[in-house]
Design a protein around this nucleic acid. Structure first.
Lengths: 186, 186
DNA sequence: TACTTCGTACAGAAATAACTGTACGTACTG
DNA sequence: CAGTACGTACAGTTATTTCTGTACGAAGTA
């Protein structure tokens, strides 16, 4: 029986077929991370690779341009889903997936959600300040005060929410979340 | 001083200007929820509305087609970010935002992330089953067993991760998360 | 029953995002 | 010092998504 890479063709085929289904399932749901389908597919491909990949490896496996691989892998590196690794003697950049998915999840929130929360929090606080100033500008104007109060109540509540969200993200960043929701199914 | 809706033009302008900045900040970051910018903007608009809106109200305020409002609001309703409300006497459908943002956050994970986690978990378990069957099909083939073992280890770890993720989402769904990460900044 | 009004399905147009090939800067190699 | 290999910026093309106008079914009204 002819063997390639230690496996018979049927065995290799069965392995690849099984991988493919997982790659597709995982890749399809990666839009939650704001990733395009093809970058998701690239990630899935790298997931089963047992050694770091170069851009040319990816290009060949994905049958796409090297430019696309470059931008796709950059997206994944920015999200810390993939790490750039060093191997002596190689001039090419090497990449491999971060296999700690708990960490990947935490990093995603740390990078994307935290940033959004901070931007919104800043806008809300500025808005609160401006509304309070507006009321002070027209002392005794009850109609104004009433209108402003409606907006202020919403803004205050939103501020509380974002503060909570940031605290939640911090429990992810500090690994404290695993004390609250343990990894093992105890 | 001329008054419209109880406020002077300058006051109204100041209020709208302040609102606009919040709407933009919030709307811009809504891509995290997989929502288009214009649907995000629609959400921001509705957020400051003090009464339920009809599709025609939205069309007018957004200066867009009614069809777009219909699809946009449907997206928001599907995500439970906006609720359809009933008002006697009105033939038109009325919508208002869900102001409990903690709930909105929890619903989002319940709807989107949980679904993705379950799909992936299913694919992974099926894959695990197939790989174990493959090994059984070729008893004593150490090379195969070794190769399969590499994939299996990754799959097992991924399964553990998704199980954890689903448990985390369940703490959101059950409000238990607020015991772990309290709303109030104690 | 005929006449409105409402929301949305659907097809085409407009806008946006993804992908490719070329070109170029950087860094090794001989 | 050429000469080569590498990664990516950039502009143009292709593909996808978003948005619009028309059309139509459902439900209310006279």
């Amino acid at each position: 029986m002819e063997r390639r890479g230690g496996l018979s063709p049927e065995q290799e085929l069965a392995l690849l077929k099984t991988r493919k289904k997982v790659i597709e399932a995982v890749g399809n749901n990666m839009d939650l991370y704001g990733i395009t389908p093809s970058t998701g597919h690239l990630y899935g491909l790298m997931f089963f690779q047992n050694k770091p990949m170069t851009l040319d490896d990816m290009r060949q496996a994905m049958e796409m341009s090297k430019t696309s691989m470059s931008t796709g892998v950059r997206t994944l590196v920015d999200l810390k889903m993939v790490n750039k690794v060093w191997e002596k003697g190689s001039r090419k950049d090497l990449y491999e997936v971060e296999h700690d998915w708990y960490q990947t999840f935490a990093d995603f929130f740390s990078i994307k959600w935290r940033k959004a929360a901070e931007i919104n929090l800043h806008a809300l606080r500025k808005s609160r300040f401006e509304l309070l100033a507006l009321v002070e500008q027209y002392p005794g104007d009850e109609e104004l005060e009433q209108q402003v109060q409606l907006d202020l109540a919403k803004i205050e509540e939103a501020i509380r929410y974002y503060q909570w969200l940031i605290r939640l993200i911090e429990t992810l960043e500090s690994q404290e979340i695993f004390k609250l929701v343990p990894k093992d199914n105890g």
